[in-house]
Structure formats: structure tokens, C-alpha cells
Simulated assay, not measured.
Amino acid sequence: MNILVCIKQVPDMESKFKVNGEGNWYDSAGLAWRMNEYDEYAVEQAVQLKEQAGGDLTVLCIGPERVKETMKKALAMGCDRGVHVADDDSYKKDPFSIASIIAEHAKTKSYDVIFTGLQSQDRGSAQVGVLTAESLGIPSVTTIVGFEFANGTITVKRELEGGVKAVVKLPVPALVTCQLGLNTPRYPTLPNIMKVKKKELITVAVADLLKESALEETQALYFPEKKGGGLVLEGDIGEMADKLIKILKEKTAVLA
């Protein structure tokens, strides 16, 4: 079994954000970085599949030099090797460009299963996984919350609106995007952290993989405009009703 899991390094969502000097993304200075939450479920499921079926598990991440630290966590969780696609401007690339990079890497590697997170916490497009599968000409299933593999067939549960779950079967090779609830990601143990030093972590220039330019780019990024707070009415029901009617008359065209 040849497995690929794609991860992204994102800032901790509790960080204090500010817009960068170019005005098109957040300023990365002073931020704490971590693995994208949805990708942690992808890594855990990929490791579980390797443990079940055997084989080889590669983790891929696109970004600047600092993403290697996040890749080391994936290696400590059980990935066998890492492929770092060096790109200081990865944040400027649209989902199609990111998917094209992954597909270009994967097209000659004969991966049986590719795992990605549902979406990234900073961009949230939820497009990279399915665009990668489309570029490779393989089937994909999104938002999975259950995963089984037997006899060359993947059986997954998808989370739909209203809490409904759909069961889908598909043959390998295939790609799945992973959602909250799929599993509980493991904590890397100290022995496995120490083993990371001996695992292969190669760096590939993004120019060697990206053959097409971006289809879109972020023109501007800004914080939402601040609005006034809500008004809390107190008193008995009759008093609050009178107050509400008065406010509606003053603020809107509602007539008594």
C-alpha cells in the first residue's frame, strides 16, 4: 500500500492577527504555527491504514522552511518520509495551483490512497482535495467521518447536512478529505519523536512541480467593520414589549 497524506501549516487560531504590508494576507511575524486541525485527522487515518495494510506513507507539505517543524510532527505520528515543497509564496497561490503542485508530485508515484484535510483553517476553500483528484483522474470523497479498507475497496461515511451520514464505496486509487469526528489523532511518543531524525525529509523546489500560473490572487484582506453592540431589554414582558416597539419606531419604518 502506497499512501500520501497532504498537510498544511497554519497559525494558531488564538493568535493575534494583523494584515501584512502588502495588504493581501495576514502578517506571519510573531505567530505560533501548528498543523491544520483537519489534516491531523488525515494523518491519523493514513497511519492507521498503513498499520492495517502495511506499505509506505509519505507526508507532503508546501510552504517556507518553517513548515518542516510541522512535518516532523506527522513523521513522529507514523509517516515514513516527508516531501517539503519549498515555496515562500505559497499563501499567494489559489487552490488550483496548490492542487496542481500535489498532482504533479503524485502522478508518477502510484499512490493507492491520498488523504487531505477537509479544508485549511486559514483559507477554508475546501477545494484542494477534489481538484487534486480531478487532476489525477481518480475518484474522491469529501467530508468523511468513517473509513474502512478491505480487498482493494474503501468504504467511507460522509457527513451531510442535518447530521445525516451517507456510505460510499470506491476502489483504489482514490482520494478522501477528512473531517472532525473521523478519529482521535495520536500524540507522538518520545521514542517516535527521536526516530524522526533518521527519517527522510527531502525538499523540492516549487518551480519543479508547478507548471501553470495562478488563476486568481487575493487583492485585499481586511478586518470586518466594527458594528455597535446589541441592546438588552429588562423588565416584565409588557414593559419589554413597549420598549421594543418604541425602538422599532425609532430605528426602522415599522409602524405601530
Rank of each mutant, 00 (worst) to 15 (best):
T184S: 08
G137P: 10
D208I: 15
K73R: 14
K165H: 07
A46E: 01
G152K: 14
A126V: 07
A241F: 12
L57M: 00
A253G: 05
E40S: 08
P173Y: 10
V232W: 13
N183K: 04
F17E: 05
T153H: 08
Q179E: 10
V128T: 08
L131M: 15
D242C: 03
L255Q: 08
Y222L: 12
L60C: 05
V43A: 01
E65C: 07
M1L: 09
V47C: 07
D39R: 09
L60Y: 11
L248C: 04
P171C: 05
I144D: 02
V83M: 08
K73L: 11
N36G: 05
E65K: 15
I144S: 05
E239S: 07
P188V: 08
I154W: 11
A207P: 04
K73I: 11
P191D: 00
G230Y: 12
T142W: 13
G63P: 06
N192L: 13
L190P: 00
Q48C: 10
M194C: 07
V128F: 11
L160R: 15
K109R: 15
P188G: 03
V141G: 03
L190K: 06
Y38R: 09
D94L: 13
W25P: 02
T184G: 02
V172Y: 12
K169V: 02
M1V: 00
A53Q: 13
A220L: 15
G117P: 06
G163F: 14
E69T: 09
